[in-house]
Structure formats: structure tokens, C-alpha cells
Amino acid sequence: MHTTIHSLKKGEQAIIKDFDIDVVPLKLLEMGCLPGNTVELLQIAPFGDPLFLNINGSHVAIRIETAKEIEVDIIKLNLW
């Protein structure tokens, strides 16, 4: 199982790695959802879906089914 946006916890940041171009809408790409850009999970809607993200500076909400398609590398924040 790959790490995807769906695996992020609230407040966690990650780098977008890869996704299947046929299932991720072009509109999301235009919002900045492209490999190499950062994504942060800002808020989870009540009932767990959709997810409110900060992708490369754009604030967007997407559903979990789309979030599951976007592979990421989680940035481990070193708090100390």
C-alpha cells in the first residue's frame, strides 16, 4: 500500500510523488497538484470526507476517492 494524501493526518505536510493521470482531474493539476509540489492537510470535514488541502498555496477540497489516487512522501517535521 502506497502512502497517499488519504494517509495524511491533520496538519501533516507531504510532497506529491505521482498519480494516475487518467483518474485525477485536470482541474486539480491546474490548482497546483503536480509531482514535486507540497500538500498539507488542513481540515477534515465532519464524517471524514472531503479533505481540505493546501496544495502549493491553493486551498482546495477534494473527496477521499481522489485523495487515494495521489501518492505522496510525508515530510517528517522535526520538532526538536
Partner: peptide
């Protein structure tokens, strides 16, 4: 149909 959902959350 393919379903997706993208909504911008403006300031």
C-alpha cells in the same frame, strides 16, 4: 460516470 469533486476554498 466518472466522479470527482474539486472545490476551491477562497479566503
Amino acid at each position: 460516470g466518472k466522479t470527482y469533486f474539486v472545490v476551491e476554498m477562497p479566503n
